[in-house]
Design a protein around this nucleic acid. Structure first.
Lengths: 233, 233
DNA sequence: GACATACTAGCTGTACACACCTAGTGACTA
DNA sequence: TAGTCACTAGGTGTGTACAGCTAGTATGTC
């Protein structure tokens, strides 16, 4: 059952040495996208070899990720991707739903035309996705959607918190979401439709409202899934 | 005018090597308590010598602090404590006021007797402070108050965000607050009185409400101070 | 005298060797 | 046969040397 994890093409970083920042976001991507599912082990030496650097900068990157609450390292054992407990998942979703409601009231900034264009593009892409579903593509589009929304937030701290909570929620959500392919694509299209409306006719508050609703839907699906999993035992 | 920064006794760490976690929180304390005021430089080598370790674990600690948004490092130059712009301060305070309102609604947990006893103790201590004011003591009590409130929060992510936002706000707040000694002590006593009431008769929501109010007062004082500073120029 | 350039001190970034810790395995013993 | 202990493989934690970068200073030239 856990074999649904997405396959990835081996990422080649060529000869150029990536910076610590690049490595950090790449590792986070892999955790969110379930290339490194919860419980899997990150080995500094392996990553160092892959990125073509020594262990030191890799350690640096991992150390930061540790503080985002995505991994945990134990001396002599290794660094493993954290699996959130049911309660922690609830905490994260509670938080995200509340954060979404703050978009409009906290130092809102104007919505640019580029943002609107990006949302339209995403809607088109997700319609294409519905024709031919691919879990990896679904996750990519969802990720782009997240980046778009994050970019709209005016308050820098809220932006940071929104980002952090996404990192924590992503892995779990993508695991559940990609189980039902058709539902996932349909849900994404629905969300993007409403987002486009909010961007065109409303404002940041409306965007937050749309986000809140769909995070709620997502949470609902996760809860159902957890209940079903409990019943299996 | 910037000479009001608190003097610290040279902290001796004896012969025992402190862990990375200890060093991290110690450095954060120094930033919050303005031993390292904004703009000051943190030198890895110096800290390594003081803590009796090599640069490697110190770098580790600083790297984490960097991601809390407290310092910024530039290759070849050094690591300097960040000075928040007026806008960023507004963002932090906006955020904290909103976060406080969420205490009650997000996975609230019961308030222990130990928490209540701690609040009472703090109230007594702050009354003693009013008799004989000391900026350092004021900051310490405020810090303990923060730890107490943080401990009450049930939602782990909210707890983390509350902590982060405190770190960012602390240095600025303590700078302003300790300018007017009498006001500072009186304000603290007032806040602790209300906090005790909230703990005894109310619940977590009431605690959040008290926090929100006093963060608002604090923000007000900061804004006045910033305006006065602008007028000076 | 003013400006451009080369130099230097002092910092962070990286590589690498080694110490330390942990879990698992195998042999030895009651 | 079950339990204990020593050993080992493989991981992270630390120390140290050196490379790379930057700002400030001194020097040389116009």
């Amino acid at each position: 059952m856990e074999n649904l994890d997405i396959e990835f093409t081996p990422d080649s970083f060529g000869e150029r040495k990536p910076s610590v920042g690049i490595m950090q976001s790449e590792i986070i991507r892999r955790i969110c996208f379930r290339k490194y599912p919860p419980g899997s082990q990150l080995k500094e030496a392996e990553l160092a070899a892959e990125f073509g650097v020594s262990r030191t900068p890799v350690r640096d990157a991992i150390s930061r990720i540790k503080h985002l609450g995505l991994v945990e390292t134990c001396n002599g054992v290794g660094t493993v991707v954290i699996e959130l407990s049911d309660e922690q998942i609830r905490h994260v979703y509670e938080m995200r739903m509340h954060l979404a409601t703050l978009f409009g009231s906290m130092s809102a900034k104007p919505i640019s035309e580029a943002n609107k264009a990006c949302a339209k593009q995403l809607l088109d892409d997700s319609k294409a996705l519905q024709q031919q579903f691919s879990p990896k593509r679904y996750i990519e589009l969802n990720h782009q959607l997240h980046n778009l929304v994050t970019d709209l937030i005016g308050n820098t701290l809220l932006q940071s918190f929104w980002q952090q909570s996404y990192y924590q929620a992503a892995s779990t959500w993508y695991r559940i979401a990609t189980l039902a392919e058709a539902d996932a694509a349909t849900g994404l299209i629905l969300e993007l439709n409403e987002l486009n409306d909010a961007l065109q006719q409303g404002g940041l508050s409306e965007v937050g409202f749309v986000q809140r609703i769909h995070i709620g839907y997502g949470f609902q699906r996760i809860k159902e899934h957890l209940l079903a999993a409990d019943a299996d035992e």
